[in-house]
C-alpha cells in the first residue's frame, strides 16, 4: 500500500505535509509527537502521542519505526532534528533515504540540492520504504479544511542517551525557517553587542528574524542556531537583507529561495552582488541606521 506517514515533532511541522502529499499523489497519516493535534490539513488520521518532553533520538527513532511499518513513505520537514531522528529511523527500517527534497517527479523520484546547492540532483529510490526530509519552500501550500480523526497513541521512547540540559535561546523574534523577513550579518560586525544592536535592531524594526554567516558564528558574535547556509538553516523569506556578507557558495545555499535578496556590502566586487535583487555598495554602519530611520522605528 502506498501511503505517507508524516512526522510532526511539533504542531508547526504538520501543515507542510499537505502540499508534499499532493505533489507525490499520496494520502497520508500524521504522527504528531507533541502539541495540539492538527486536524485540518487533510490527513486520513492523526496519531497523537502528546509527549511533554522530546525524547533523545535513539528512543524516538525506535518509537517512530514501530509506527511506520506498513507505510511506503515516511516524511518530515527538513531540520536538524528530523535529520537526527529520521536517518536513524531509516537505519532501523532498512529504508532508502532522501534528505532535503525540493521537488517530486513521482513517488520514487525526487530532486534535491547537493554540493552546497551547486548541483540539483534527481534521486531515484530503488527500494521501498523511503524516508524523506522535505524543504517546504519547494512545494505549494496545501489546502486547509476538514477535520481528521484523532487517535491517541502511546509511544515507548525510552532512550539510552540521557539529556543533561538544553539551552533554548530564541526569545521574541520569529523562527528563522518561517520568518517573512530576515536580516543577516557577517564577519565585519565587531562583537556580539554590535551584532545585536545593528542587525537585531533592523530585524526588530521589520518584525523579522536574525541570521548570520558561519564566520559570524565562529567568531562568537552570533549564536550557532542563527547560522544560515549549507550546514546551517535553509531559509526562504520574502525579504532577506544580507549586511557585511560576501556571498560564499555555502551561505548562498541557504538563502537562494528567498523572494528578494538585498545585499549591503562595501566591496563593489563582492560575489553576493551577483545574486542580490538589490545591491547597495555602502558601509553597513551607515546604511543600516539610515534604513531604520526611513522605516521609522
Amino acid at each position: 500500500m502506498s501511503k505517507l506517514l508524516w512526522i510532526a515533532f511539533e504542531a508547526s511541522d504538520a501543515p507542510a505535509a499537505a502540499g508534499f502529499a499532493q505533489a507525490v499523489g499520496l494520502g497520508f497519516d500524521l504522527l504528531q509527537i507533541s502539541g495540539q493535534p492538527v486536524t485540518d490539513i487533510g490527513a486520513d488520521k492523526v496519531l497523537s502521542a502528546n509527549l511533554s518532553e522530546m525524547p533523545t533520538s535513539d528512543g524516538l527513532a525506535k518509537a517512530i519505526a514501530g509506527v511506520a511499518g506498513g507505510y511506503s513513505h515516511v516524511g518530515a520537514v527538513s531540520s536538524m532534528r528530523s535529520k537526527d531522528v529520521l536517518a536513524r529511523v531509516a537505519g532501523l527500517m532498512d529504508a532508502a533515504m532522501v534528505t532535503d527534497v525540493v521537488a517530486a517527479e513521482s513517488p520514487t523520484r525526487f530532486k534535491r540540492p547537493m554540493v552546497a546547492g551547486s548541483i540539483l540532483a534527481t534521486v531515484e529510490v530503488l527500494s521501498m520504504p523511503a524516508v524523506l526530509t522535505v524543504r517546504p519552500a519547494g512545494f505549494a501550500k496545501g489546502d486547509r479544511g476538514g477535520s481528521s480523526s484523532v487517535e491517541s497513541i502511546s509511544l515507548d521512547a525510552t532512550s539510552v542517551a540521557k539529556r543533561l540540559g538544553a539551552s533554548a535561546r530564541g526569545g521574541a523574534r520569529p523562527d528563522l525557517t518561517q520568518a517573512r523577513v530576515i536580516v543577516s550579518g557577517g564577519r565585519p560586525l565587531k562583537d556580539a553587542q554590535t551584532f545585536e544592536s545593528v542587525i537585531g535592531g533592523l530585524a526588530d524594526a521589520l518584525g523579522g528574524a536574525v541570521g548570520a554567516t558561519r564566520a559570524a558564528v565562529d567568531s562568537g558574535i552570533a549564536a550557532n542556531e542563527l547560522q544560515v547556509g549549507q550546514t546551517g538553516k535553509i531559509v526562504a523569506p520574502d525579504l532577506y537583507i544580507a549586511a557585511g556578507i560576501s556571498g560564499s557558495t555555502q551561505h548562498m545555499a541557504g538563502i537562494k529561495d528567498s523572494k528578494i535578496i538585498v545585499a549591503i556590502n562595501k566591496d563593489p566586487d563582492a560575489p553576493i552582488f551577483e545574486f542580490a535583487d538589490y545591491g547597495l555598495v555602502a558601509d553597513l554602519y551607515q546604511a543600516i541606521p539610515e534604513l531604520r530611520a526611513k522605516i521609522g522605528k
Partner: peptide, 17 residues
C-alpha cells in the same frame, strides 16, 4: 537503495541591480 539519475545546474537567480 537510491541512485542519482541526473545532475543539473540549479535554476539561477535573476541578476538584480
Amino acid at each position: 537503495k537510491t541512485r542519482i539519475v541526473r545532475m543539473e545546474a540549479p535554476a539561477a537567480r535573476q541578476a538584480g541591480r
